[in-house]
Design a protein around this nucleic acid. Sequence first.
DNA 1: TTGAAAGCGCTAACAC
DNA 2: GTGTTAGCGCTTTCAA
Lengths: 345, 345
Amino acid sequence: MAVPRSSGHISAAPPTLADVAELAGVSRQTVSNAVNNPDLLRADTLARVQDAIDKLGYQPNRAARSLRTRASHLIGLRMPALQEGTANAMMDRFVHTFVEAAAEAGYHVLLFHGDPADPLDGYDELLRSTAVDAFVVTDTHLGGQQTTWLQSRRARFVSFGRPWTQPDAKHPWVDVDLAYGAEIATEHLIERGHSKIAWIGWHKDSLLGEERRSGWIHAMHTHGLSTTGLASRTEDSISSGKAAADAILDETQPTALVCASDTLAMGVLHSLFERRLRLGEDVAVVGFDDSQVAQTVPPGITSVRPPLEEAARELVKALEELLATPSYAAPGVMLKPALTVRGSS
Amino acid sequence: MAVPRSSGHISAAPPTLADVAELAGVSRQTVSNAVNNPDLLRADTLARVQDAIDKLGYQPNRAARSLRTRASHLIGLRMPALQEGTANAMMDRFVHTFVEAAAEAGYHVLLFHGDPADPLDGYDELLRSTAVDAFVVTDTHLGGQQTTWLQSRRARFVSFGRPWTQPDAKHPWVDVDLAYGAEIATEHLIERGHSKIAWIGWHKDSLLGEERRSGWIHAMHTHGLSTTGLASRTEDSISSGKAAADAILDETQPTALVCASDTLAMGVLHSLFERRLRLGEDVAVVGFDDSQVAQTVPPGITSVRPPLEEAARELVKALEELLATPSYAAPGVMLKPALTVRGSS
DNA sequence: TTGAAAGCGCTAACAC
DNA sequence: GTGTTAGCGCTTTCAA
């Protein structure tokens, strides 16, 4: 496979199996075997074929191979909607490792776009045209529409995110235990001597939000701390984070706040900035996601870091099994996040 | 094309051209024409075929079509290395619009991974296996290795980033005039009444860095302001941004700083935080890239915003022409950034 | 261990 | 306008 890139072979039409066969003095099928089942060949034949392959810089044509094997070695990933003005950029880190891990397993990633208003848009076309072997679904918290539908179409897929609303779902999934995340975040603050620890979270209809919130409650109660008047629910935006922080700082004067997202944490920072309070000295703040924002804002925001790299690798592993064994039914995998401690606490 | 998704048709093997032909009572070729050259058919035949297509939920098999037409309708994009601990996340926004614009033009994006140490890694395989119709290259400032090599391989590609080191390059490219960006950033500060405006930039060997720096110099000199002792060169990291800011604040006491990146701007913020100086009141700061960090940090960092959406759309346009006309030689497109003004200035 | 034949689903070229 | 023929490059029988 060590084909020198500078190989003089520059032709519009890449070499085919037939070219290699001719050069090596064997039949086309033997070349195919050399590529796909090398053990079938005698050592010297294999060497001769390999030579020819290297010399020509031969690489099997993907379309032809796909047509024959009914496998594209492509994994479909629908681009999640971009949210400007927030600190949400987990996907970037996730996609990165996913592409890397997929490459190691011999898969490339097909990025596609779908109408943000329709969670199903885009899947259908790729499925019908057999463009991808499987999908990775990432927005399961929006309700199980995609997964339910994909299942009904007998599509293969794995999901990053547990099947929240369908306990009977059979597809492989990987998720991060963010209730635990909220718990270690809260405990970290308790260890630091805080006892009035507020929660700034999302509205009640957010499954992810309720999960995270439960971790905070659990940690507080375990340590005999009251949560009365210390919780607020709002939108995931800077301005509502700021408003929530303003209200809670006025009413209950907590010394620390745990936020359901780094975006909300930034809202809190806006409130502190206006009040001329020093982050990490006057008030402690912990966020979620370990975004670039948390990493770079002075003095750094302590944040719950989901193991996205591990999640991506687990998903690729599940994908490999799924594609090897059509009836593969995997147990879901739940990963634990860690806390990245920075100056804000 | 309005195929109801809930269509009961659930089969492992999607329908083929032949299935449609049989159902419609025409030959396979006629179905193919109905899909690719509808005008060739008589209206009633077309309607009958369309009916059959809709009924079966037919969609041409991509592998078969690619094999025949030698076009995959896939654009290759190599994932740029992820940089944690920085504010650099332009790619996210760019990729987003690119995927969207490409979809409109009938292309999907194939994301692939390459060894970060080798700028050429990954391209070769996709090229040889004719997996993609073209590439988008995004790291041209790292030297023209990829573009030179792709050109030598007669690969089709467009680049986001001008061909810095090869004035004779013939491929279509789109870039953003960031010298102009630095200029409007500096002028904005001058308008705000600043005259001692420092520059925190990158090392001399960075082409991008020198370009941005020249915009600052130009604006300063145009307004008769001295730049002596006001410029520093450093790495693109928070810690070096902070160190540079520390040095320049101690030595020259500028009232405003223009930074070559939001990452450096965050370094400056760290310096201000330590000195208990108020961003936007005691010292003004302007960054580059309009990252999430700039958008969310209180009170918001004024930042030069590259028109990534427009760039992505221009690139797709160039790609369409390039793939339609093999000999297509486009003039490069240079876009102007805008300044997003926030509380930091 | 190697080779010949067949065909995956599609479209280009040409005939009718 | 529509149908027939051939073949894109590969792998999967199956025979030698």
